[in-house]
Each structure stands twice: as structure tokens, then as C-alpha cells.
């Protein structure tokens, strides 16, 4: 608000009297120092109003006014105003982003089942060293560094400051490092590729202390990856005494449970929406 009032005030001040002159470069790169030449004489006030800052310095009208690089870090429109005893004069100039040198790298999701086509989205937002969004097309190098495999990279040119790729998750579980690089920036994100739904879920039964020990074969997905420990496998057993169900988490690759069985029984297994084989056993045999 204060900035706006200052600009309005200065605007009217400049309108009212224009005696001294001020000369600014038409285009300036962010983070570079410039010199603004002026005409006139006597003591004057110099105002530099940028997108995020406003500075006032006492200068001598007619001299060159140096503007430090740190005053011009933010891209956007700047107004330079010189107010001397004979009135105020103003000039506009634009500060453009510097070369692309930083990235904001957004990768989604952080976990993905293996073999999910186009399941990973990697988006790089291109900035210069001063966090100005670089709208000029710039080449961004995306790389995939899977464990024990050679890195693969692909270049994309940013459009309006954004470059992106969509990736299909690998067929092998494990963490994959995704990188994006531009200039001196090199950002890394990790996507955990996890086993997909269980595939070919099979159970076997053997006699246990309290009944039958029902155990799955090592639970894998269709690509042969081990389904992570903690994944729930549901066992259902139906016999003369009724139905028994138990949700067991996989531990060390298998899920197992001991069930009391009365007479002939049918045992089924499922994990999420995937069902497995069916067993028929007879208690007491």
C-alpha cells in the first residue's frame, strides 16, 4: 500500500514538473549492476521502485547513479525517479531473469506399484539464481537412476518455465532416483517402486499343534517381486463348526496361520481383491 501511494505520489509529482532528465537501460538482467545517467544540477533524491523493494538515495543531479546488482535481483518492472529542486522525472525499465540455474523438482507419487504405465510424473520448474521464474525455453535434463542399473537420461526444453516428463515404473521393485538438472542445479528425488498386487497366490496346509498350519508360498506379484511384508492376506476356512477368517500380514515373504479344523474343511485365500487357490482338508486325518 505504501509502495502504491509512493508511486502515485511520484507519478503526479513527475507530471507536474519535468526539468531534470534520467536515462535508464531498456533491458537489464537480474543480478547485474547498472549505471543510470541523469541531467540537471544540484542535490536530488533518487528513488528506485521495484517489484519487491523501494530505495531512496541522495544523489547529485547530472551525475551517473550506480545501481548495485543486489538491488536488481528480482525480475519485473522498475521505476527510477529523480527528484531535484526543479521537479521530478521518471523512467521505467525491465529486469529480465538471468540464466536458468535452479530448479524446483516435483515428483509424484512417492510410491508406485511396479509396471504402472505413465504412473510417475516429474515436473521441473526453472528458476535463475535469484529464484526468478525463467520463461525463456531452457533445456532440462531428466535422468532415471535405478538401483544396479545404468542411468538413463532425456532432455526436455522448458515451456513457460516448466519442463516435465511422465514415466512408467520399472518392472523391478526398489527405490529409483529421479534427477533433473539445469545449469548448476541438480535435484534428486526418490520414488519407491513397490510390488504390485499378489499374483498366483497359493496356499498349502500341514498339521500344526492346534490344527492345520496354513501357509502361503512366497507371495510375489506377476513380475516376480516380493509383495512387501505387512501386506494383509485373508484366510477363510469353512467347516462343520462354522467359518473362520483371519487377516494375516505377510512376514518374511509368507503369510501363515494355524487354524483349528473340524471335519472336512475348505480353505481359501485372498489379498485385497486378488484371490488365490482353494484347499480342501480333513481334520482328524
Amino acid at each position: 500500500m505504501r509502495l502504491l501511494l509512493t508511486v502515485v505520489f511520484m507519478f503526479f509529482a513527475v507530471l507536474s514538473v519535468t526539468a531534470s532528465e534520467i536515462h535508464v537501460p531498456a533491458q537489464v538482467t537480474a543480478g547485474s549492476a547498472i549505471t543510470i545517467s541523469t541531467s540537471g544540477s544540484g542535490e536530488a533524491s533518487f528513488y528506485l521502485i521495484g517489484p519487491t523493494t523501494a530505495n531512496k538515495t541522495k544523489v547529485q543531479a547530472g551525475s551517473n547513479i550506480p545501481v548495485d546488482s543486489d538491488q536488481l535481483e528480482h525480475a519485473g518492472r522498475y521505476v527510477a525517479i529523480l527528484c531535484a529542486s526543479d521537479g521530478c522525472t521518471a523512467a521505467n525499465f525491465f529486469v529480465n531473469p538471468a540464466e536458468a540455474n535452479r530448479l524446483s523438482f516435483l515428483v509424484h507419487p512417492s510410491r508406485i506399484p511396479v509396471g504402472s504405465p505413465q504412473g510417475i510424473s516429474a515436473v521441473a520448474i526453472v528458476h535463475d539464481s535469484f529464484r526468478n521464474l525463467v520463461l525463456k525455453p531452457a533445456p532440462v535434463t531428466f535422468s532415471i537412476m535405478a538401483k544396479n542399473e545404468k542411468p538413463i537420461s532425456a532432455a526436455r526444453t522448458s515451456e513457460n518455465g516448466v519442463a516435465w516428463v511422465r514415466l512408467t515404473s520399472a518392472r523391478k521393485e526398489g527405490p529409483t532416483r529421479l534427477g533433473a538438472a539445469i545449469g548448476h542445479a541438480d535435484e534428486i528425488r526418490v520414488v519407491q517402486q513397490v510390488a504390485a498386487d499378489a499374483c498366483n497366490l497359493r496356499i498349502k496346509a500341514s498339521r500344526g499343534k492346534r490344527g492345520f498350519l496354513i501357509e502361503t508360498d512366497p507371495v510375489h506379484d506377476c513380475a516376480g517381486n516380493s509383495v512387501p511384508d505387512g501386506t494383509v492376506v485373508s484366510f477363510t476356512e469353512s467347516d462343520a463348526a462354522g467359518k473362520t477368517t483371519v487377516d494375516v500380514p505377510i512376514k518374511r515373504g509368507v503369510a501363515k496361520v494355524e487354524m483349528p479344523i473340524d471335519g472336512r474343511a475348505k480353505i481359501t485365500v485372498a489379498s485385497g481383491v486378488v484371490t488365490g487357490n482353494e484347499l480342501e482338508v480333513a481334520g482328524g486325518q
Binding site: 505387512g230 463348526a241 462354522g242 473362520t244
Partner: peptide, 25 residues
């Protein structure tokens, strides 16, 4: 935590002494 594992045995649909339909186990 993945523990504890709770087994649900002897599930049956029955009528209780008060005449209500119940799932027991």
C-alpha cells in the same frame, strides 16, 4: 503395527435365546 493378528473362528448365523438373528463366533 501389523500385530496383533486376531482369528475369527466358528462364525455362524444363528438365532439367539431372545429370538434375534445374530452372527456368532
Amino acid at each position: 503395527s501389523a500385530d496383533p493378528v486376531i482369528e475369527v473362528n466358528q462364525q455362524k448365523l444363528e438365532t439367539d435365546p431372545l429370538g434375534k438373528k445374530v452372527l456368532t463366533g
